[in-house]
């Protein structure tokens, strides 16, 4: 009885310090505990809510772990064939230039099967925002080698580690996309600490603001973990990501205002 009284005393609007955005549905996330997808979904939706864009936003879900993004993101959504999200987004934006259009894609989707769609949408300078989750692995299908898998990194199709002679090199597609004149803002972020979440959210907001100015493609890579695919605990996975992924995929802005930054 005492407990109930205390609870009802606490749950009052004036005591509210955090509230889940209405643009995330109540559906239980299909992502593994510790995965960066959930956080990234939330901040994308928070930005759309804060900017008041709900009525004019169309999101495109990929094939991969986030294939069901439309179950969680409470805006109008289309689910694309594997790798083709930028082609869908191109048409949506061309046909309705006043809408906010984003794709949400993983590294297998965006940097392997969808390389052509990614590069050409970027090169045409489509006024869309691409949110690119890079966890160096195919998560949904059970942890196979991705175009982004690090040298020596183990996966179910590189069980002895990625052998560069046999399997080729990891692809830094974000640096590649930054080279194209059609991109305006290209950045690489992460969501493993509260500070990084804030930075990523800021970058997403900037991208959506730039989209309204019709200055070309905005592209945000989020380096993320895959604790189940990497066969680690969430804490280990984040540590491994900091020690191994970040040196290869360094965080920070790559292209700002259409200019590639000097250190890139």
């Amino acid at each position: 009885m005492t407990e109930t009284t205390i609870k009802s005393d606490i749950i009052k609007p004036e005591n509210l310090v955090y509230k889940k955005t209405d643009l995330m549905t109540d559906k239980v996330l299909s992502y593994c505990p510790g995965c960066g997808h959930g956080t990234t979904h939330r901040i994308v939706m928070e930005v759309i809510e804060e900017m008041g864009l709900m009525e004019d936003t169309i999101g495109i879900a990929p094939v991969g772990c986030s294939v069901l993004a439309y179950e969680f993101m409470n805006v109008d959504m289309q689910q694309a064939a594997h790798g083709r999200a930028p082609a869908l987004a191109t048409a949506v934006k061309r046909l309705m230039p006043h809408k906010t259009v984003f794709t949400y894609q993983g590294d297998g989707d965006l940097a392997a099967i969808g390389t052509a769609e990614t590069i050409h949408a970027a090169n045409r300078g489509e006024n869309i925002t691409i949110i690119f989750i890079n966890n160096g692995i195919y998560g949904m299908t059970g942890g196979q080698m991705a175009p982004t898998t690090l040298p020596g990194m183990k996966s179910s199709t590189s069980p002895y580690g990625r052998d560069l002679d046999m399997m080729g090199h990891p692809l830094k597609i974000t640096e590649l996309v930054a080279q194209l004149p059609g991109t305006h803002f290209v950045t690489r972020q992460a969501v493993h600490t509260p500070a990084n979440v804030r930075k990523t959210k800021k970058a997403i907001r900037k991208a959506f603001e730039l989209q309204q100015q019709k200055v070309g493609m905005t592209f945000i890579e989020v380096v993320s973990n895959c604790n189940s695919g990497w066969k680690m605990t969430p804490v280990q996975a984040n540590q491994w990501m900091v020690e191994n992924m970040f040196p290869f995929y360094p965080l920070g802005d790559i292209k700002v205002d259409g200019e590639i930054l000097k250190n890139n």
Partner: peptide, 13 residues
């Protein structure tokens, strides 16, 4: 491949 997926995006609207 891109053309038909552009149709998918446009038709969805």
């Amino acid at each position: 491949v891109a053309s038909i997926n552009m149709l998918y995006g446009g038709a969805s609207c």
